[in-house]
Write a protein that binds this DNA or RNA. Structure first.
Length: 475
RNA sequence: GGAGGGAUCGCAUAGUGGUCUAGUGCGGCCGCCUGCUAAGCGGUUACAGGGACUUAAAUCCCUGUCAUGGGUUCGAAUCCCAUUCCCUCCGCCA
């Protein structure tokens, strides 16, 4: 979420960012946001002024009513009028003070009664005014809701350093590492290897759950588990991340906090009975770990293995072959909560942490900087990491590392104190896969396949597979 | 799923309709005192929104917030209703 303050004070910054994203729809909403914001402010000011008067008045009634004796009553009235900020009320108090009944026997009681009924009358007037004001702003709650929804639907401000561009074709390769292997034979795609080795069962996946589901069998399943364990181990013991095992189902608010709702509900699985949502990435629960908190110590590095669930409505018909894009997949996710001034270099470190895994696995990979037009909704700056898959002949996105700046922190209300005792400020959040599983599995199978259809297991994974060096069959 | 109890400032607690503009203790921060440490003394102590003044910060004023949302009342931490969460017991269960 963008701050209303930014939209008010620097609308040109917001406009330019939306233009760079090519987000014409959001651009059109800016004027409406300004209008709603202005309207809300003026109506609030009127109501608050009235409420302030009402509070001042109501504060008089208690002591007035509770006074025990004329001296006490008189003293209260005298003292209070001296500090009364409201002219009408001060005038009223002075009038009570000047009344003649004080001198009669029990006269103070009639002053008291008079004062109370006068003030009640005044209060009734204020209540009427307040009511009129409320009636005038009849649609206020709806407008407030609309303003809120509009704010939640604007994408993050694009970082200045992000190159211009309209879409994926304009992304820039910033680093390439590792040599694509040279095969003395035609490398096979993973769906052929997986099937002939008996480690991927497509037909049974479809039988169980329909299209875009598969079953991993034997060493295929074990290889995936080895990859998960390997990646978690490296991140926790060498890269400084704390392992987290979060719920795979979350409440609606959690998805608002991370930026998936209200805009991208289409791509999520949802249980209507309990209003629980299956996470599309561990980024969602981890962002919300610290929702509504003021963090004591930064930075915080987390890494989580989770399954991820996506409807893939937006990608209907794409990547239907193999295991590249399923409705359910596993992923190890890195996540950081950091101080704003360090988020730039933290992003670079996160990319390094992800590519480190590719290097250790021996997979040829490259780092791609996303252009403004291809940037995700919540991201200010992103790098994708792609590994080469010689069988299907394409670069596979196995990670997308993003600096979300304060965009998610503002939605999820996650803050820290720059100085002890200072004002809380929003943290910056970063997320990146480290790495996404079925694709890294594809890369391992396709890069290390042998002429006989077997697959050599990368050295770093062998300890996780009981020392096995090669997959020749599922067993 | 059933029955009962609960939710107050960072923590612990007080608070049964107006003096609550939420008290007290602990912790934190600032200062004083002080061979060191500890203790002591004084002060301070949330968040959000809006406004005044400002280059800005600081400061000041107003509104809201005692789990959340409604209601009763001139006035609600306090009374009523609903929701959420926590605890205890019962049932069921990997």
């Amino acid at each position: 979420m963008l701050s209303l303050d930014l939209i008010r004070k620097s609308p040109e910054v917001v406009r330019r960012s939306l233009e760079r994203r090519g987000d014409a729809a959001s651009l059109a909403l800016l004027a409406r946001i300004g209008e709603l914001d202005g309207r809300r402010r003026t109506s609030r000011q009127g109501a608050e002024a009235l409420r302030a008067r009402q509070n001042r008045l109501t504060r008089l009634l208690g002591p007035l009513r509770g006074a025990k004796g004329g001296a006490q009553l008189k003293g209260f009235i005298e003292k209070t009028q001296a500090t009364m900020a409201d002219d009408d009320l001060r005038a009223a108090l002075l009038r009570f003070y000047a009344m003649s009944n004080w001198d009669k026997l029990d006269g103070w009681k009639s002053v008291q009664a008079h004062a109370i009924s006068e003030l009640m009358k005044l209060n009734a007037e204020l209540a009427t005014q307040l009511q009129a004001l409320e009636k005038q702003d009849e649609g206020a709650p709806e407008l407030e809701q609309e303003l809120n929804d509009l704010l939640l639907s604007l994408p993050n401000i694009v970082d200045e350093a992000v190159p211009d561009g309209a879409g994926p074709a304009d992304n820039q390769v910033v680093a390439t590492s590792g040599e694509p292997p040279a095969f003395p034979f035609t490398p096979k795609p993973h769906w052929e290897l997986g099937e002939s080795l008996g480690i991927i069962d497509f037909a049974r996946g479809v039988k169980l759950s329909g299209t875009r589901f598969y079953v991993l069998m034997g060493l295929g399943a074990r290889l995936q588990r080895a990859l998960i364990a390997f990646m978690l181990d490296v991140h926790t013991t060498e890269h400084g991340y704390t392992e987290v095992y979060p719920p795979f189902m979350v409440k609606r608010e959690a998805l608002v906090g991370s930026g998936n709702l209200p805009k991208f509900g289409d791509n999520l699985y949802h249980d209507a009975e309990d209003d629980l949502w299956l996470i599309p990435t561990a980024e969602v629960p981890i962002t919300n770990l610290h929702r509504d908190e003021i963090l004591e110590a930064l930075p915080l590095y987390y890494v989580a293995y989770t399954a991820c669930f996506r409807r893939e409505k937006m990608s209907a018909g794409r990547d239907t072959r193999g295991i590249k894009r399923g409705h359910q997949f596993d992923k190890v996710e890195m996540y950081k909560f950091v101080a704003p001034e360090s988020s730039g270099q933290e992003l670079d470190r996160m990319v390094a942490d992800a590519t480190d895994l590719c290097r250790r696995l021996g997979l040829p990979h490259r780092v791609v900087q996303l252009c403004a037009g291809d940037l995700g909704f919540a991201s200010a700056k992103s790098y994708d990491i792609e590994v080469w898959a010689p069988g299907c002949g394409e670069w596979l996105e196995v990670s997308s590392c993003s600096n979300c700046a304060d965009f998610q922190a503002r939605r999820a209300n996650i803050r820290y104190r720059p100085q002890a005792g200072g004002r809380p400020q929003f943290v910056h959040t970063l997320n990146g896969s480290g790495l996404a599983l079925p694709r890294i599995l594809i890369a391992v199978l396709e890069n290390f396949q042998q002429a006989d259809g077997s697959v050599i297991i990368p050295g770093v994974l062998r300890p996780y597979l009981g020392g096995a060096e090669r997959i020749t069959s599922a067993k």
